[in-house]
């Protein structure tokens, strides 16, 4: 296995494109190194992105934030501007593993590892995060929900990598939240998760919403029916119940060592309801 730490994105793309064997991008490494140690993956090339200028930066852009592909979760959570704008996204990122893991793990890696239970992804999806992908044919911007396809599989082409994630400016009266369920209080993979963004008008009526659920299908799912259950309502109990039902109905989980189908379908609805209440309070500026 070769280890390379290029200092330009072009060099990273060339290395990834030229490798005949298995090439993997190393940003935080908290998934990749575990997979290597467990013998689940034997890459021929590792491309470390942390030495590429900009990959470690969080910068303001058009009223929103562009987060470099190698920014660890802990740094995102120390960024006052970002956490004020998107507390739900930051909290999701803050739930990945331990304090130690958060010192390394990146949202980009969490996204590209394509695990259905990735904690930082649902809320980022809900707030409309867009990935900038660099590749042999130049750069393209893609809504992040279109990147994971199935466990361990993404829509990235050979030679492509995610350079940064763009979080657009938050509309007025908008709040986000993410909740997940785990059997302990920390250190577990989500058994179910829900990220949500709610926008209100001046009367407190929901005018826009986006709901994404995690760990209940082969990838994070955007549940339009769940958003529709909120839009046009004051996000009252009836709307929340409809939201929960829509999430439970949309979930297509499996039974495994972490939870059962019945449990996941039920609990994802509970989480949606609870997350919506938090997002609602945030949208109201409470």
């Amino acid at each position: 296995m070769r280890y390379e730490a290029p200092t330009t994105v072009e060099a990273a793309v060339s290395l990834l494109s030229a490798e005949a064997g298995l090439a993997k991008v190393l940003s935080g490494g908290t998934d990749l190194l575990v997979q290597m140690r467990m013998g689940m993956m034997e890459p021929d090339l590792i491309v470390d992105t942390k030495r590429i200028p900009g990959f470690g930066d969080i910068v303001e852009e058009n009223g929103g934030y562009r987060v470099g592909g190698a920014v660890p979760s802990a740094e995102l959570n120390e960024h006052a501007g970002f956490t004020a704008m998107y507390p739900g996204v930051a909290e999701g990122a803050d739930l990945i593993g331990s304090t130690q893991v958060q010192g390394r793990a990146t949202i980009t890696g969490n996204l590209c590892n394509a695990g259905p239970a990735a904690d930082s992804v649902p809320c980022a999806v809900a707030v409309g995060c867009v990935a900038r992908i660099a590749g042999p044919n130049g750069k393209r911007d893609v809504a992040i929900e279109d990147i994971p396809q199935a466990p361990g599989k993404t829509s990235l082409e050979k030679g492509e990598l995610v350079e940064s994630l763009f979080f657009p400016a938050k509309p007025a009266n908008t709040g986000d939240a993410y909740l997940r369920f785990i059997p302990r209080t920390e250190m577990d993979i989500a058994v179910a998760g829900c990220g949500i963004s709610i926008t209100l008008d001046d009367t407190g009526t929901c005018t826009a919403a986006k709901v994404a659920i995690g760990a209940v299908a082969i990838k994070v799912l955007v549940v339009d029916e769940a958003a529709q259950a909120l839009i046009g309502t004051k996000v009252d109990e009836a709307a929340l119940d409809a939201l929960a039902s829509a999430c439970s109905a949309a979930a297509k989980p499996i039974t495994d060592k972490r939870g059962t189908v019945e449990f996941r379908k039920e609990v994802v609805g509970v989480l949606a309801k609870r997350a919506a209440k938090i997002a609602l309070d945030r949208a109201k500026g409470a």
């Binding site: 059997p183 302990r184 209080t185 920390e186 250190m187 577990d188 993979i189 495994d256 060592k257 972490r258």
Partner: peptide
């Protein structure tokens, strides 16, 4: 210890063999 129908241990690690952590 969680076994599959294949007789293999499903959770041979601290991730899914869940020891209590400080925050619990």
């Amino acid at each position: 210890y969680i076994y599959g129908d294949d007789g293999k241990l499903q959770n041979a690690g601290f991730l899914d063999y869940r020891l209590p952590v400080a925050s619990d």
